[in-house]
Design a protein around this nucleic acid. Sequence first.
DNA 1: GGGTAATCGAGACGGTACGTCTTGTCTTAGG
DNA 2: CCTAAGACAAGACGTACCGTCTCGATTACCC
Lengths: 200, 200, 200, 200
Amino acid sequence: VTVKAPDPARRSERSRQAVLDAAIRLCRDRGYERTTIEAIAAEAGVGKQTIYRWWPSKGAVIMDALTEESAASADFPDTGNVRADLRRQMTSVVELLAGTDFGPLYRGVIAALQSDPELAATVRERIVEPRVTACVERLRRAQRSGELRRGIDLESVVELLYGPIYYRLLLPGRPLDPTGVGAMVDLAFAGLKRSPPRRR
Amino acid sequence: VTVKAPDPARRSERSRQAVLDAAIRLCRDRGYERTTIEAIAAEAGVGKQTIYRWWPSKGAVIMDALTEESAASADFPDTGNVRADLRRQMTSVVELLAGTDFGPLYRGVIAALQSDPELAATVRERIVEPRVTACVERLRRAQRSGELRRGIDLESVVELLYGPIYYRLLLPGRPLDPTGVGAMVDLAFAGLKRSPPRRR
Amino acid sequence: VTVKAPDPARRSERSRQAVLDAAIRLCRDRGYERTTIEAIAAEAGVGKQTIYRWWPSKGAVIMDALTEESAASADFPDTGNVRADLRRQMTSVVELLAGTDFGPLYRGVIAALQSDPELAATVRERIVEPRVTACVERLRRAQRSGELRRGIDLESVVELLYGPIYYRLLLPGRPLDPTGVGAMVDLAFAGLKRSPPRRR
Amino acid sequence: VTVKAPDPARRSERSRQAVLDAAIRLCRDRGYERTTIEAIAAEAGVGKQTIYRWWPSKGAVIMDALTEESAASADFPDTGNVRADLRRQMTSVVELLAGTDFGPLYRGVIAALQSDPELAATVRERIVEPRVTACVERLRRAQRSGELRRGIDLESVVELLYGPIYYRLLLPGRPLDPTGVGAMVDLAFAGLKRSPPRRR
DNA sequence: GGGTAATCGAGACGGTACGTCTTGTCTTAGG
DNA sequence: CCTAAGACAAGACGTACCGTCTCGATTACCC
């Protein structure tokens, strides 16, 4: 038995926009958790069925709304100085997460994704992977040009760079702060261990 | 009007245990999200009121259950070799998160905490802060003994170490894997940048 | 503003038949109440609009289907013996109601008509009145020929004859049974009261 | 597997009354068909679950409301004159059906019962059978005392008396009219056929 | 050791949202 | 212009849980 899929050609752009707008508006007003599909439909002036027809879950709606409003490209700058480029990129990521609606909404999506494999897949494909890939590529270029050590796993480097950001986004304690991101990148670059004294 | 607080002395240990056991059991069977207070009460053979009397939320119950079963101390080993100690410690953390029930439950708690400040505070106090503090102290000793560079913010180091773990715990893509943790610690120690050639 | 009436000349006979057939089929399978316009359209391979264009309600569709398949005339036999004619006629009515699909469908229509004046009017015109009129006429002839008492309201007689049938059709308890109809007619003819003893 | 039945001892009389009142009020205002369980719950200030817990269907609620407000006994008067007693009784039935809220509500219940066997059983037990039984008993006494012919099936007599009432209650055409009921009873008593001329 | 007060299991309660279903209208493409 | 198809706004359906409440029936403490 196959589920009858709706025909995307007949989709009402008007309703789609209304739903995404309403979702953003409600999340802003009452937060992700207290925003319901029921309320989104009412706020958007749309039948609930229209939402269920085109999105599998509330998280998916918010995901769409998120990628709609900030179609922020995953592209990395490449000025030839990888550390400067990473500082700039990570700082702008944190500014987005800490300074706009994006942060709280994204936190909600990540929370939802813990128990929603379909949403997890969407987030991976649409958010995580593109950025990982772009970052890895930038790092590879830096590695080739001798800015980075050889023999290190670049995906691990991505995690070393993004990990602390997610840590502060999702765990209570020190909330995200764009001003400290540069130092974090520098720390990752320099490493923890004491440099051996240069021989004179 | 003061809220009448229940008297802890009269609390039924039997019920408390039954609730925590039932919570763990249900979360294991159907996952955090699909576990309800209703079901915990039924499974534990306990009145719902008994749960609401002693815990503020489902997340708080799971938190208690979690800290009950793994009263894993936050203590850090100190063998004098900080890199080895960190490798051992981080590896055992990842083993707990990836190899036991703890991981999925903890993911659920972190998801819930995104919209529950009270739970967030509990997690910070009972889970995050003790470990951060213990880690910072171990790092400080290492810094004093010259194993670590001076002038680096130790809390940031903690985030650099734990960040990638939470990244892989909470984001879809590469799930946690205890075998790679050591390399990650090494990477953080060595840093990304190419070491300048030793002068001859 | 005038409602634009559809042009009957352009009506698709093919669709009309498909709808009526599907309606009968679905009512037979799942009963009147659980048959929906949605399902009729799907089963008939017809757009919903096509149904809404030509029929005002589900009840009207079933009404059409009913009068289509059993175009049973309302004509009364007239053999000169009114009691025998009524016995025959009422028995055949009950046989139709109790022995075919007609009964359950008709019950559904009568149920629907309680809250649908338009359907009520249709049923009155197409089902009830023709039969009442035919019955009254037959009774009038009987009255003239001296088989029936004079001075009795013939419409009331019709109700006395049909009433018990509808009673058993629509109320739970004794369901309709064609074998008892003759006795019922006899009872109506003879009346309840004890005949005064014939004088000797 | 047994369905867990709610405990009637814990039932809230307050809610029960509020539901029945609201049901009557809404049916009066918008009719049986357009009254929804949703609206009854809202109007009564009651959770929907409370309705679903205690009643199997909307029809059952209305049934309760009906038998609540008119706990009209099924008793028959017995003055010794059966025809007069029946005239009085049938007239008061018709007055109830034609002159109060009872009529429209009862029509709705009978409509619903056509596709709801459980409701049908309730109506049979609570409305139909008691009245049939009471009527049969009164008729039996009349039969014994010689007011009625012997050898006639008394249940059929009940149908002969009530049938025309339900006919006019449920079919479109001549609506119920209390003033004509007496004549109808007389007609049933006298029968249709011309009395044989008394011999001189 | 008897009174009394709080906790306990149980589960009904007023609510809210869920995800589904159907209604009757509207839109699109094809004949 | 009718048709098949089906998206749409609306809103009721019956279910699941929420957090509060009201019951008796145990406790466990105080006098």
